[in-house]
Design a binder for these strands. Sequence first.
DNA 1: CCTGGTCATTTGTCCGTATAAACTTTTGAC
DNA 2: GTCAAAAGTTTATACGGACAAATGACCAGG
Lengths: 251, 251
Amino acid sequence: MADNTRKQKPSRYRDIAARLQKEIRLGKYPIGNLLPTETELMAQCSASRQTVREALRILMDQGLIVRRAGLGSVIIATEPPVLFTHSVKSLGEWLRYSNETYRDLVDSREITATGKLAALLKCEPGKHWFLIEAIRRADQFADPLGWVEIYVLRKFAGVVKRSDHGRTPVHEQIAKMFGQTTEYAQMEIFARAMPAALARTLRVKPGSPALTVVRRYYGVREELFEVTVTTHPEGRYTYSMDMQRSLRPRV
Amino acid sequence: MADNTRKQKPSRYRDIAARLQKEIRLGKYPIGNLLPTETELMAQCSASRQTVREALRILMDQGLIVRRAGLGSVIIATEPPVLFTHSVKSLGEWLRYSNETYRDLVDSREITATGKLAALLKCEPGKHWFLIEAIRRADQFADPLGWVEIYVLRKFAGVVKRSDHGRTPVHEQIAKMFGQTTEYAQMEIFARAMPAALARTLRVKPGSPALTVVRRYYGVREELFEVTVTTHPEGRYTYSMDMQRSLRPRV
DNA sequence: CCTGGTCATTTGTCCGTATAAACTTTTGAC
DNA sequence: GTCAAAAGTTTATACGGACAAATGACCAGG
Protein backbone atom coordinates (compact mmCIF):
# COMPACT_ATOMS: atom_id res chain seq x y z
CA MET A 1 0.00 0.00 0.00
CA ALA A 2 1.34 3.37 -0.93
CA ASP A 3 1.28 5.99 1.77
CA ASN A 4 0.32 9.13 -0.02
CA THR A 5 -0.52 11.04 3.12
CA ARG A 6 2.20 13.18 4.53
CA LYS A 7 3.59 12.13 7.85
CA GLN A 8 1.56 13.87 10.52
CA LYS A 9 2.78 14.74 13.93
CA PRO A 10 0.77 12.93 16.54
CA SER A 11 -1.80 15.06 18.23
CA ARG A 12 -4.77 14.48 20.37
CA TYR A 13 -7.41 15.38 17.84
CA ARG A 14 -5.76 13.37 15.08
CA ASP A 15 -5.74 10.33 17.34
CA ILE A 16 -9.41 10.78 18.06
CA ALA A 17 -10.16 11.25 14.37
CA ALA A 18 -8.17 8.14 13.49
CA ARG A 19 -10.02 6.11 16.09
CA LEU A 20 -13.38 7.28 14.78
CA GLN A 21 -12.37 6.61 11.18
CA LYS A 22 -11.42 3.09 12.14
CA GLU A 23 -14.64 2.50 14.01
CA ILE A 24 -16.65 3.82 11.10
CA ARG A 25 -14.76 1.64 8.65
CA LEU A 26 -15.34 -1.40 10.84
CA GLY A 27 -19.05 -0.75 10.90
CA LYS A 28 -19.50 0.35 14.50
CA TYR A 29 -21.48 3.31 13.17
CA PRO A 30 -23.36 2.32 10.01
CA ILE A 31 -24.21 4.82 7.32
CA GLY A 32 -27.15 6.96 8.32
CA ASN A 33 -26.50 6.58 12.02
CA LEU A 34 -25.11 9.19 14.33
CA LEU A 35 -21.68 9.43 15.85
CA PRO A 36 -21.57 10.00 19.61
CA THR A 37 -22.27 13.62 20.47
CA GLU A 38 -19.47 16.02 21.20
CA THR A 39 -20.22 15.78 24.89
CA GLU A 40 -20.08 12.00 24.83
CA LEU A 41 -16.81 12.04 22.95
CA MET A 42 -15.38 14.54 25.44
CA ALA A 43 -16.12 12.04 28.17
CA GLN A 44 -14.93 8.99 26.22
CA CYS A 45 -11.65 10.62 25.26
CA SER A 46 -11.16 12.88 28.25
CA ALA A 47 -10.63 15.73 25.85
CA SER A 48 -11.97 19.23 25.59
CA ARG A 49 -14.75 20.19 23.25
CA GLN A 50 -12.31 22.09 21.04
CA THR A 51 -10.24 18.94 20.57
CA VAL A 52 -13.22 16.76 19.82
CA ARG A 53 -14.53 19.30 17.33
CA GLU A 54 -11.17 19.45 15.60
CA ALA A 55 -11.26 15.68 15.23
CA LEU A 56 -14.78 15.77 13.84
CA ARG A 57 -13.73 18.46 11.39
CA ILE A 58 -11.26 16.01 9.92
CA LEU A 59 -13.97 13.45 9.35
CA MET A 60 -16.12 16.16 7.81
CA ASP A 61 -13.33 17.19 5.45
CA GLN A 62 -12.91 13.59 4.43
CA GLY A 63 -16.55 13.34 3.59
CA LEU A 64 -17.33 10.72 6.20
CA ILE A 65 -19.86 12.73 8.17
CA VAL A 66 -22.19 15.69 7.91
CA ARG A 67 -22.79 17.71 11.04
CA ARG A 68 -26.02 19.55 11.76
CA ALA A 69 -26.93 21.60 14.76
CA GLY A 70 -29.65 19.97 16.78
CA LEU A 71 -29.10 16.64 15.15
CA GLY A 72 -25.58 15.41 15.44
CA SER A 73 -22.90 13.93 13.21
CA VAL A 74 -24.47 11.75 10.55
CA ILE A 75 -22.36 9.05 8.94
CA ILE A 76 -22.54 9.37 5.17
CA ALA A 77 -19.69 7.11 4.08
CA THR A 78 -17.63 4.36 5.63
CA GLU A 79 -14.38 5.36 4.04
CA PRO A 80 -12.99 8.41 2.36
CA PRO A 81 -13.68 7.91 -1.33
CA VAL A 82 -10.34 7.91 -3.08
CA LEU A 83 -10.63 9.16 -6.54
CA PHE A 84 -8.73 10.53 -9.42
CA THR A 85 -9.24 14.09 -10.44
CA HIS A 86 -8.37 16.22 -13.36
CA SER A 87 -8.73 19.91 -12.81
CA VAL A 88 -8.07 23.04 -14.75
CA LYS A 89 -8.14 26.65 -13.69
CA SER A 90 -10.37 27.64 -16.54
CA LEU A 91 -12.19 25.85 -19.24
CA GLY A 92 -9.94 27.61 -21.69
CA GLU A 93 -7.15 25.53 -20.27
CA TRP A 94 -9.26 22.50 -20.78
CA LEU A 95 -8.37 22.05 -24.38
CA ARG A 96 -4.80 23.08 -24.12
CA TYR A 97 -4.43 25.38 -26.98
CA SER A 98 -1.25 27.23 -26.50
CA ASN A 99 -1.55 30.98 -26.14
CA GLU A 100 0.15 31.17 -29.49
CA THR A 101 -2.91 29.97 -31.31
CA TYR A 102 -5.78 32.17 -32.31
CA ARG A 103 -9.12 32.06 -34.08
CA ASP A 104 -9.32 33.59 -37.53
CA LEU A 105 -12.95 34.62 -38.02
CA VAL A 106 -14.44 33.31 -41.24
CA ASP A 107 -18.15 34.02 -40.92
CA SER A 108 -20.91 34.60 -38.39
CA ARG A 109 -24.63 34.45 -38.87
CA GLU A 110 -27.92 33.53 -37.31
CA ILE A 111 -29.15 30.02 -37.88
CA THR A 112 -32.10 27.81 -37.03
CA ALA A 113 -31.44 24.45 -35.46
CA THR A 114 -33.08 21.58 -37.28
CA GLY A 115 -32.50 17.87 -37.56
CA LYS A 116 -29.00 16.77 -36.68
CA LEU A 117 -28.01 20.25 -35.63
CA ALA A 118 -30.83 20.37 -33.09
CA ALA A 119 -29.55 17.07 -31.74
CA LEU A 120 -26.03 18.42 -31.51
CA LEU A 121 -27.27 21.50 -29.71
CA LYS A 122 -29.63 19.41 -27.63
CA CYS A 123 -32.54 21.75 -28.24
CA GLU A 124 -35.95 21.57 -29.82
CA PRO A 125 -35.90 22.00 -33.63
CA GLY A 126 -36.62 25.53 -34.75
CA LYS A 127 -34.68 27.24 -32.00
CA HIS A 128 -32.49 30.10 -33.12
CA TRP A 129 -28.76 30.15 -32.51
CA PHE A 130 -25.91 32.32 -33.57
CA LEU A 131 -23.06 30.60 -35.38
CA ILE A 132 -19.46 31.76 -35.54
CA GLU A 133 -17.11 29.98 -37.88
CA ALA A 134 -13.38 30.36 -37.61
CA ILE A 135 -10.06 28.76 -38.33
CA ARG A 136 -7.73 27.91 -35.49
CA ARG A 137 -4.19 28.86 -36.39
CA ALA A 138 -0.82 28.84 -34.71
CA ASP A 139 0.91 30.81 -37.38
CA GLN A 140 -0.28 32.81 -40.30
CA PHE A 141 1.64 30.76 -42.82
CA ALA A 142 1.54 27.25 -41.44
CA ASP A 143 -1.34 24.90 -42.12
CA PRO A 144 -4.33 25.66 -39.91
CA LEU A 145 -4.77 23.57 -36.76
CA GLY A 146 -8.45 23.11 -37.21
CA TRP A 147 -11.90 24.38 -38.01
CA VAL A 148 -14.04 25.89 -35.27
CA GLU A 149 -17.81 26.22 -35.16
CA ILE A 150 -19.17 28.11 -32.19
CA TYR A 151 -22.90 28.05 -31.53
CA VAL A 152 -24.21 30.50 -28.95
CA LEU A 153 -27.70 31.47 -27.88
CA ARG A 154 -28.95 34.32 -30.05
CA LYS A 155 -28.94 36.74 -27.13
CA PHE A 156 -25.19 36.39 -26.92
CA ALA A 157 -24.58 37.21 -30.58
CA GLY A 158 -22.89 40.41 -29.45
CA VAL A 159 -19.71 38.59 -28.58
CA VAL A 160 -18.73 38.49 -32.22
CA LYS A 161 -18.18 42.24 -32.15
CA ARG A 162 -15.34 42.01 -29.69
CA SER A 163 -12.11 42.02 -31.57
CA ASP A 164 -9.51 40.45 -29.38
CA HIS A 165 -7.62 38.64 -32.08
CA GLY A 166 -9.52 35.49 -31.24
CA ARG A 167 -7.35 34.51 -28.33
CA THR A 168 -9.96 34.59 -25.58
CA PRO A 169 -12.39 31.68 -25.44
CA VAL A 170 -15.87 32.78 -26.42
CA HIS A 171 -17.47 31.48 -23.24
CA GLU A 172 -15.16 33.74 -21.26
CA GLN A 173 -16.15 36.69 -23.38
CA ILE A 174 -19.78 35.84 -22.78
CA ALA A 175 -19.07 35.68 -19.07
CA LYS A 176 -17.49 39.10 -19.18
CA MET A 177 -20.08 40.79 -21.40
CA PHE A 178 -23.27 39.17 -20.17
CA GLY A 179 -22.42 37.77 -16.76
CA GLN A 180 -23.25 34.28 -17.95
CA THR A 181 -21.13 31.86 -15.97
CA THR A 182 -20.32 28.30 -16.83
CA GLU A 183 -21.32 25.90 -14.09
CA TYR A 184 -20.89 22.68 -15.95
CA ALA A 185 -19.34 21.56 -19.18
CA GLN A 186 -19.20 18.46 -21.24
CA MET A 187 -16.86 17.23 -23.94
CA GLU A 188 -17.02 14.54 -26.57
CA ILE A 189 -14.12 13.44 -28.72
CA PHE A 190 -14.35 11.18 -31.72
CA ALA A 191 -12.68 10.45 -35.03
CA ARG A 192 -14.42 10.96 -38.35
CA ALA A 193 -13.67 11.44 -42.00
CA MET A 194 -12.83 15.02 -42.86
CA PRO A 195 -15.95 16.60 -44.40
CA ALA A 196 -15.44 17.80 -47.94
CA ALA A 197 -16.60 21.27 -46.98
CA LEU A 198 -13.64 21.72 -44.65
CA ALA A 199 -10.96 19.75 -46.45
CA ARG A 200 -9.82 22.47 -48.80
CA THR A 201 -9.69 25.12 -46.08
CA LEU A 202 -7.67 22.89 -43.82
CA ARG A 203 -5.49 21.77 -46.73
CA VAL A 204 -6.12 18.07 -46.43
CA LYS A 205 -7.92 15.50 -48.52
CA PRO A 206 -11.64 14.95 -48.03
CA GLY A 207 -12.20 11.77 -46.09
CA SER A 208 -8.83 11.87 -44.38
CA PRO A 209 -8.78 11.19 -40.63
CA ALA A 210 -9.98 14.03 -38.46
CA LEU A 211 -10.37 14.54 -34.71
CA THR A 212 -13.58 16.26 -33.71
CA VAL A 213 -14.17 17.72 -30.28
CA VAL A 214 -17.60 18.89 -29.18
CA ARG A 215 -17.77 21.02 -26.07
CA ARG A 216 -21.02 22.03 -24.41
CA TYR A 217 -21.20 24.81 -21.84
CA TYR A 218 -24.02 24.94 -19.31
CA GLY A 219 -24.95 27.86 -17.10
CA VAL A 220 -27.12 27.91 -14.03
CA ARG A 221 -30.25 25.80 -14.16
CA GLU A 222 -28.61 23.47 -16.67
CA GLU A 223 -29.11 25.92 -19.50
CA LEU A 224 -26.98 25.01 -22.49
CA PHE A 225 -25.76 28.32 -23.85
CA GLU A 226 -22.77 27.48 -26.00
CA VAL A 227 -21.58 24.57 -28.07
CA THR A 228 -18.32 24.46 -29.94
CA VAL A 229 -17.28 21.92 -32.53
CA THR A 230 -13.65 21.80 -33.52
CA THR A 231 -12.30 19.58 -36.25
CA HIS A 232 -8.59 18.88 -36.57
CA PRO A 233 -6.75 17.10 -39.36
CA GLU A 234 -4.62 14.11 -38.46
CA GLY A 235 -1.37 15.02 -36.75
CA ARG A 236 -2.20 18.64 -36.01
CA TYR A 237 -3.77 18.26 -32.62
CA THR A 238 -3.54 15.86 -29.70
CA TYR A 239 -5.75 16.12 -26.68
CA SER A 240 -3.97 15.27 -23.47
CA MET A 241 -4.89 15.25 -19.84
CA ASP A 242 -3.50 14.22 -16.49
CA MET A 243 -5.25 12.68 -13.57
CA GLN A 244 -4.00 12.67 -10.06
CA ARG A 245 -4.95 10.41 -7.23
CA SER A 246 -6.44 12.54 -4.52
CA LEU A 247 -8.85 12.66 -1.70
CA ARG A 248 -12.33 13.90 -2.10
CA PRO A 249 -12.33 17.27 -3.85
CA ARG A 250 -14.66 19.85 -2.47
CA VAL A 251 -18.11 19.61 -4.03
CA MET B 1 -22.79 37.69 -11.57
CA ALA B 2 -24.25 34.41 -10.47
CA ASP B 3 -24.22 33.79 -6.78
CA ASN B 4 -23.29 30.20 -6.40
CA THR B 5 -22.45 30.43 -2.74
CA ARG B 6 -25.14 29.47 -0.35
CA LYS B 7 -26.52 32.19 1.81
CA GLN B 8 -24.53 32.26 5.02
CA LYS B 9 -25.71 33.47 8.32
CA PRO B 10 -23.71 36.46 9.42
CA SER B 11 -21.12 35.64 12.00
CA ARG B 12 -18.12 37.32 13.42
CA TYR B 13 -15.51 35.15 11.78
CA ARG B 14 -17.23 35.24 8.41
CA ASP B 15 -17.24 39.03 8.55
CA ILE B 16 -13.55 39.07 9.33
CA ALA B 17 -12.85 36.57 6.55
CA ALA B 18 -14.86 38.67 4.09
CA ARG B 19 -13.00 41.81 5.06
CA LEU B 20 -9.64 40.10 4.60
CA GLN B 21 -10.70 38.61 1.26
CA LYS B 22 -11.64 42.05 0.07
CA GLU B 23 -8.40 43.59 1.24
CA ILE B 24 -6.42 40.86 -0.43
CA ARG B 25 -8.34 41.27 -3.66
CA LEU B 26 -7.75 45.02 -3.58
CA GLY B 27 -4.04 44.50 -3.21
CA LYS B 28 -3.55 45.64 0.36
CA TYR B 29 -1.57 42.45 0.93
CA PRO B 30 0.27 41.49 -2.25
CA ILE B 31 1.11 37.91 -3.07
CA GLY B 32 4.08 36.68 -1.08
CA ASN B 33 3.48 39.09 1.77
CA LEU B 34 2.14 38.22 5.15
CA LEU B 35 -1.28 38.88 6.60
CA PRO B 36 -1.34 40.53 10.04
CA THR B 37 -0.61 38.02 12.76
CA GLU B 38 -3.39 36.47 14.76
CA THR B 39 -2.58 38.75 17.67
CA GLU B 40 -2.75 41.86 15.48
CA LEU B 41 -6.06 40.76 13.99
CA MET B 42 -7.43 40.13 17.48
CA ALA B 43 -6.68 43.74 18.30
CA GLN B 44 -7.91 45.13 14.99
CA CYS B 45 -11.18 43.26 15.14
CA SER B 46 -11.64 43.10 18.90
CA ALA B 47 -12.20 39.41 18.55
CA SER B 48 -10.84 36.36 20.28
CA ARG B 49 -8.08 34.27 18.85
CA GLN B 50 -10.53 31.46 18.14
CA THR B 51 -12.64 33.74 16.02
CA VAL B 52 -9.68 35.12 14.12
CA ARG B 53 -8.38 31.62 13.47
CA GLU B 54 -11.76 30.53 12.21
CA ALA B 55 -11.69 33.41 9.75
CA LEU B 56 -8.19 32.54 8.61
CA ARG B 57 -9.25 28.96 8.13
CA ILE B 58 -11.77 30.14 5.57
CA LEU B 59 -9.08 31.93 3.62
CA MET B 60 -6.94 28.82 3.83
CA ASP B 61 -9.74 26.64 2.51
CA GLN B 62 -10.19 29.04 -0.36
CA GLY B 63 -6.57 28.74 -1.24
CA LEU B 64 -5.76 32.38 -0.58
CA ILE B 65 -3.19 31.84 2.15
CA VAL B 66 -0.86 29.26 3.57
CA ARG B 67 -0.20 29.34 7.30
CA ARG B 68 3.04 28.24 8.88
CA ALA B 69 3.96 28.23 12.52
CA GLY B 70 6.69 30.72 13.24
CA LEU B 71 6.17 32.55 10.01
CA GLY B 72 2.63 33.75 9.58
CA SER B 73 -0.09 33.68 6.94
CA VAL B 74 1.44 33.97 3.49
CA ILE B 75 -0.70 35.31 0.67
CA ILE B 76 -0.56 32.90 -2.23
CA ALA B 77 -3.43 34.18 -4.38
CA THR B 78 -5.54 37.30 -4.64
CA GLU B 79 -8.77 35.52 -5.36
CA PRO B 80 -10.10 32.04 -4.88
CA PRO B 81 -9.15 30.12 -8.01
CA VAL B 82 -12.24 28.80 -9.70
CA LEU B 83 -11.53 25.36 -10.92
CA PHE B 84 -13.26 22.89 -13.08
CA THR B 85 -12.78 19.33 -12.04
CA HIS B 86 -13.43 15.97 -13.53
CA SER B 87 -13.19 13.05 -11.19
CA VAL B 88 -13.67 9.34 -11.39
CA LYS B 89 -13.77 6.76 -8.64
CA SER B 90 -11.44 4.51 -10.53
CA LEU B 91 -9.39 4.89 -13.61
CA GLY B 92 -11.46 2.14 -15.18
CA GLU B 93 -14.23 4.68 -15.24
CA TRP B 94 -11.98 7.05 -17.06
CA LEU B 95 -12.67 5.61 -20.43
CA ARG B 96 -16.28 4.81 -20.13
CA TYR B 97 -16.51 1.41 -21.61
CA SER B 98 -19.79 -0.07 -20.76
CA ASN B 99 -19.68 -3.09 -18.50
CA GLU B 100 -20.91 -5.07 -21.44
CA THR B 101 -17.61 -4.81 -23.26
CA TYR B 102 -14.67 -7.11 -22.76
CA ARG B 103 -11.16 -7.74 -24.00
CA ASP B 104 -10.62 -10.72 -26.25
CA LEU B 105 -7.00 -11.80 -25.82
CA VAL B 106 -5.16 -12.16 -29.10
CA ASP B 107 -1.52 -12.53 -28.11
CA SER B 108 0.96 -11.78 -25.35
CA ARG B 109 4.72 -11.79 -25.46
CA GLU B 110 7.84 -10.15 -24.21
CA ILE B 111 9.24 -7.31 -26.27
CA THR B 112 12.15 -4.92 -26.29
CA ALA B 113 11.44 -1.22 -26.60
CA THR B 114 13.34 0.46 -29.38
CA GLY B 115 12.91 3.58 -31.47
CA LYS B 116 9.36 4.88 -31.57
CA LEU B 117 8.14 2.31 -29.10
CA ALA B 118 10.71 3.47 -26.55
CA ALA B 119 9.40 7.00 -27.08
CA LEU B 120 5.83 5.86 -26.61
CA LEU B 121 6.79 4.03 -23.44
CA LYS B 122 9.01 6.90 -22.34
CA CYS B 123 11.88 4.60 -21.47
CA GLU B 124 15.43 4.07 -22.60
CA PRO B 125 15.74 1.87 -25.72
CA GLY B 126 16.49 -1.72 -24.93
CA LYS B 127 14.24 -1.97 -21.93
CA HIS B 128 12.08 -5.06 -21.74
CA TRP B 129 8.32 -4.89 -21.55
CA PHE B 130 5.51 -7.36 -21.71
CA LEU B 131 2.90 -6.78 -24.40
CA ILE B 132 -0.68 -7.95 -24.34
CA GLU B 133 -2.75 -7.55 -27.48
CA ALA B 134 -6.49 -7.84 -27.43
CA ILE B 135 -9.67 -6.86 -29.19
CA ARG B 136 -12.27 -4.83 -27.36
CA ARG B 137 -15.73 -6.18 -28.09
CA ALA B 138 -19.25 -5.45 -26.99
CA ASP B 139 -20.72 -8.51 -28.58
CA GLN B 140 -19.28 -11.63 -30.05
CA PHE B 141 -20.86 -11.10 -33.43
CA ALA B 142 -20.78 -7.34 -33.91
CA ASP B 143 -17.78 -5.51 -35.32
CA PRO B 144 -15.09 -5.04 -32.68
CA LEU B 145 -14.94 -1.69 -30.90
CA GLY B 146 -11.21 -1.41 -31.10
CA TRP B 147 -7.74 -2.83 -30.81
CA VAL B 148 -5.95 -2.78 -27.48
CA GLU B 149 -2.23 -2.93 -26.84
CA ILE B 150 -1.22 -3.14 -23.19
CA TYR B 151 2.44 -2.70 -22.29
CA VAL B 152 3.41 -3.59 -18.73
CA LEU B 153 6.75 -3.87 -16.97
CA ARG B 154 8.12 -7.37 -17.37
CA LYS B 155 7.76 -8.08 -13.66
CA PHE B 156 4.00 -7.77 -14.03
CA ALA B 157 3.73 -10.25 -16.89
CA GLY B 158 1.83 -12.55 -14.55
CA VAL B 159 -1.37 -10.60 -14.99
CA VAL B 160 -1.97 -12.26 -18.31
CA LYS B 161 -2.66 -15.53 -16.53
CA ARG B 162 -5.70 -14.18 -14.78
CA SER B 163 -8.73 -15.15 -16.74
CA ASP B 164 -11.48 -12.76 -15.82
CA HIS B 165 -13.03 -12.54 -19.24
CA GLY B 166 -11.14 -9.32 -19.83
CA ARG B 167 -13.54 -7.10 -17.97
CA THR B 168 -11.23 -5.81 -15.26
CA PRO B 169 -8.73 -3.14 -16.28
CA VAL B 170 -5.21 -4.52 -16.26
CA HIS B 171 -3.88 -1.82 -13.94
CA GLU B 172 -6.44 -2.89 -11.36
CA GLN B 173 -5.36 -6.49 -11.72
CA ILE B 174 -1.77 -5.39 -11.23
CA ALA B 175 -2.82 -3.48 -8.15
CA LYS B 176 -4.49 -6.57 -6.76
CA MET B 177 -1.77 -9.06 -7.65
CA PHE B 178 1.34 -7.02 -7.01
CA GLY B 179 0.23 -4.17 -4.79
CA GLN B 180 1.28 -1.67 -7.42
CA THR B 181 -0.93 1.38 -7.06
CA THR B 182 -1.54 4.08 -9.59
CA GLU B 183 -0.73 7.51 -8.24
CA TYR B 184 -0.88 9.42 -11.44
CA ALA B 185 -2.10 8.81 -14.95
CA GLN B 186 -2.00 10.56 -18.25
CA MET B 187 -4.02 10.28 -21.42
CA GLU B 188 -3.54 11.41 -24.98
CA ILE B 189 -6.17 11.29 -27.69
CA PHE B 190 -5.57 11.85 -31.36
CA ALA B 191 -6.83 10.84 -34.78
CA ARG B 192 -4.76 8.87 -37.22
CA ALA B 193 -5.11 6.69 -40.24
CA MET B 194 -5.97 3.10 -39.41
CA PRO B 195 -2.76 1.07 -39.62
CA ALA B 196 -2.89 -1.69 -42.22
CA ALA B 197 -1.96 -4.27 -39.59
CA LEU B 198 -5.17 -3.60 -37.66
CA ALA B 199 -7.56 -2.80 -40.48
CA ARG B 200 -8.53 -6.36 -41.35
CA THR B 201 -9.04 -7.40 -37.74
CA LEU B 202 -11.23 -4.39 -37.07
CA ARG B 203 -13.04 -4.85 -40.40
CA VAL B 204 -12.32 -1.45 -41.82
CA LYS B 205 -10.23 -0.15 -44.66
CA PRO B 206 -6.56 0.67 -44.08
CA GLY B 207 -6.11 4.42 -43.84
CA SER B 208 -9.66 5.05 -42.68
CA PRO B 209 -10.11 7.44 -39.75
CA ALA B 210 -9.25 6.01 -36.35
CA LEU B 211 -9.30 7.36 -32.80
CA THR B 212 -6.26 6.41 -30.77
CA VAL B 213 -6.06 6.78 -27.01
CA VAL B 214 -2.80 6.36 -25.13
CA ARG B 215 -2.98 5.98 -21.38
CA ARG B 216 0.05 5.94 -19.13
CA TYR B 217 -0.08 4.75 -15.55
CA TYR B 218 2.48 5.89 -13.01
CA GLY B 219 3.12 4.39 -9.60
CA VAL B 220 4.98 5.87 -6.68
CA ARG B 221 8.18 7.74 -7.48
CA GLU B 222 6.87 8.57 -10.94
CA GLU B 223 7.53 5.07 -12.20
CA LEU B 224 5.71 4.38 -15.45
CA PHE B 225 4.53 0.80 -15.16
CA GLU B 226 1.79 0.45 -17.74
CA VAL B 227 0.88 1.98 -21.06
CA THR B 228 -2.19 1.12 -23.06
CA VAL B 229 -2.89 2.08 -26.62
CA THR B 230 -6.38 1.63 -27.94
CA THR B 231 -7.38 2.25 -31.53
CA HIS B 232 -11.00 2.61 -32.54
CA PRO B 233 -12.46 2.80 -36.04
CA GLU B 234 -14.59 5.79 -36.90
CA GLY B 235 -18.04 5.72 -35.32
CA ARG B 236 -17.39 2.91 -32.86
CA TYR B 237 -16.21 4.91 -29.92
CA THR B 238 -16.66 8.41 -28.57
CA TYR B 239 -14.77 9.66 -25.59
CA SER B 240 -16.82 11.89 -23.34
CA MET B 241 -16.21 13.68 -20.11
CA ASP B 242 -17.93 16.14 -17.80
CA MET B 243 -16.41 18.95 -15.84
CA GLN B 244 -17.96 20.66 -12.90
CA ARG B 245 -17.26 24.06 -11.48
CA SER B 246 -15.89 23.77 -7.98
CA LEU B 247 -13.74 25.45 -5.46
CA ARG B 248 -10.20 24.40 -4.89
CA PRO B 249 -9.99 20.64 -4.72
CA ARG B 250 -7.64 19.19 -2.21
CA VAL B 251 -4.11 18.86 -3.54
C1' DC C 1 -55.50 14.81 10.88
C1' DC C 2 -52.93 18.77 11.02
C1' DT C 3 -51.05 23.15 13.04
C1' DG C 4 -48.49 25.62 16.08
C1' DG C 5 -45.94 26.11 20.38
C1' DT C 6 -42.80 24.37 24.03
C1' DC C 7 -38.85 21.86 25.43
C1' DA C 8 -34.62 19.21 25.57
C1' DT C 9 -30.72 18.11 22.80
C1' DT C 10 -26.93 19.10 19.83
C1' DT C 11 -23.98 21.75 17.13
C1' DG C 12 -22.50 26.69 16.05
C1' DT C 13 -20.25 30.67 17.61
C1' DC C 14 -17.43 33.19 20.75
C1' DC C 15 -14.70 34.40 24.73
C1' DG C 16 -10.60 33.54 27.93
C1' DT C 17 -6.10 31.14 28.83
C1' DA C 18 -1.83 28.19 28.52
C1' DT C 19 1.88 25.40 26.50
C1' DA C 20 4.21 23.21 22.39
C1' DA C 21 6.17 23.29 17.94
C1' DA C 22 7.91 25.62 13.87
C1' DC C 23 10.29 29.18 12.07
C1' DT C 24 13.22 33.53 11.87
C1' DT C 25 16.55 36.39 13.74
C1' DT C 26 20.15 37.39 16.64
C1' DT C 27 24.10 36.34 19.10
C1' DG C 28 28.47 34.38 20.05
C1' DA C 29 32.36 31.30 19.40
C1' DC C 30 35.76 30.17 16.25
C1' DG D 1 32.82 34.96 7.39
C1' DT D 2 30.69 30.50 9.15
C1' DC D 3 28.38 27.68 11.92
C1' DA D 4 25.67 26.61 15.83
C1' DA D 5 23.30 27.84 19.86
C1' DA D 6 20.02 31.00 21.97
C1' DA D 7 16.23 34.13 21.81
C1' DG D 8 12.09 35.86 19.92
C1' DT D 9 7.93 35.51 17.04
C1' DT D 10 4.07 33.08 15.20
C1' DT D 11 1.01 29.45 14.58
C1' DA D 12 -0.63 24.72 16.44
C1' DT D 13 -2.72 22.34 19.99
C1' DA D 14 -5.36 22.07 24.11
C1' DC D 15 -7.98 23.36 28.18
C1' DG D 16 -11.89 25.94 30.37
C1' DG D 17 -16.55 28.45 29.94
C1' DA D 18 -20.90 30.71 27.91
C1' DC D 19 -24.80 31.72 24.92
C1' DA D 20 -27.20 31.24 20.20
C1' DA D 21 -29.33 28.66 16.62
C1' DA D 22 -31.11 24.54 14.60
C1' DT D 23 -33.47 20.32 15.08
C1' DG D 24 -36.63 16.70 16.61
C1' DA D 25 -39.96 15.06 20.05
C1' DC D 26 -43.91 16.08 22.32
C1' DC D 27 -48.22 18.11 23.33
C1' DA D 28 -52.38 21.18 23.08
C1' DG D 29 -55.90 23.08 20.22
C1' DG D 30 -58.41 23.35 16.02
